[in-house]
Amino acid sequence: MEQYVLPNSGHSSNPEASKLGMWLFLFTELLLFGGLFLVYMVYRALNPEAFLIASYELNITMGTINTVVLLTSSLTIAMSISALQKGKKGLALYLMLATIAFSLIFMVIKFFEWNAKIHHGLFPGMEHYQSLPHGESLFFFLYFFMTGLHALHVIIGAIFIGIVVVKVGTDEVTGDQGTLLENSGLYWHLVDIIWIYLFPLFYLIH
């Protein structure tokens, strides 16, 4: 019997399928943070004053710098996709490495911010944290939980892009076969979007 081959196989690479899969994954990420935004909304509605007071502990300058850093990293990863599609492999690699560098800058700034808060005893479970009014301690819990989860995503995103850098280097990912790079870009933009909301909700309550 001659072998019949299906025209649509699940085992062959399918860029459209991977892209759709990535988008669906992003939706789950959105809803994951969504649960936390919901908790934030409820407790901010219940404790408007306490959230305002607690937010003065955060440093707007640092937050703004980090926002600009992350937006710029989104620019570089988006440009790297165009660069690779235009066949400029070297430029694409530089732009991807720049994205990873920006993510490191973001994490360093984040580290100093967290460090300052922990120094003031504001991490959940610490002595000063326990003595805070309930609304304020909720603010700091949500701050650490949400920015922490976001930072985790930044790290994962940077590693993802790092893997793509290697694959572009070995020509496994090219302009025509660029889905992996595009997907890492999509993921990175989502991380950016989450931060776009975290920034005003925590830093800009004033």
Partner: peptide
């Protein structure tokens, strides 16, 4: 302020989604 901050954030998110993504 909350409304304006969220409105601007949403505009930014839409811009990222529409162009970058």
């Amino acid at each position: 302020t909350v409304v304006t901050a969220l409105a601007i954030a949403t505009t930014k998110a839409i811009v990222v989604g529409y162009y970058f993504m």
